[in-house]
Amino acid sequence: MSEPSVDISLTRVFWITLRRDLLLAYRRRNDLISPLMFFLMVATLFPLGVSPEPEFLSQVAAGVVWVAALLATLLSMDSLFRSDFDDGSLEQMLLSPQPLALLVLAKVVAHWTVSGLPLTILAPLLGVMLYLPGEGMSALIFSLLLGTPTLSLIGAIGAALTVGLRKGGVLITLLVLPLYIPVLIFGTGAVQAASTGLPIGGYLAILGAILALGVVLTPLAVAAGLRISVSN
């Protein structure tokens, strides 16, 4: 038997994994809708539960949209490695000669494309529903665009550590939420600043810096977590 060819460039591995995950997500389109519906519904609960006054809502809009996006991301996180773990393809990824961190990064990018990106696109609608001042709208979009990939990356650590457990769903929120707080603070900070006419460059720069750090470091932690979970 001849040696199987492992002579694939890293870029190609990245694209193949990304394409595979996007295709899988496309085949299970219905699963993609639920986090988005959750996002919409959480945002609907606030005017009903707290106060429908436009002045009040326009003050809390940034926070509500961000918290809803954060919870929706968290909700979708558990499925990131679940099906791969169940059908054994995760083990194959661990055994493959390609660096696991790179495969993980591709999977997270795919996950963000079908969860974080739609959330960001949907966010202006929620902003309008919650009377977000017009000046804050672009800040909301840009902060979510820079913030949601970080949420996906950090969430992947929690997903990797809990994928082998039967009751991973609740635990993942416990592990990941504290790590989400800095992103939330700077994300809502940007929108609040924009609403009051202050510059938002600094907030976006920090969000971008956190994202840059996350892209480099979190795949390593996720890979370590997956190796632990699979050996369980």
Binding site: L161, L171, A221, S231, N232
Partner: peptide
Amino acid sequence: LHHAIDNEINAGKAGAV
């Protein structure tokens, strides 16, 4: 996390990460 994973060695590793 330490208490959710039954295997002690893996629980330790996961907690460490």
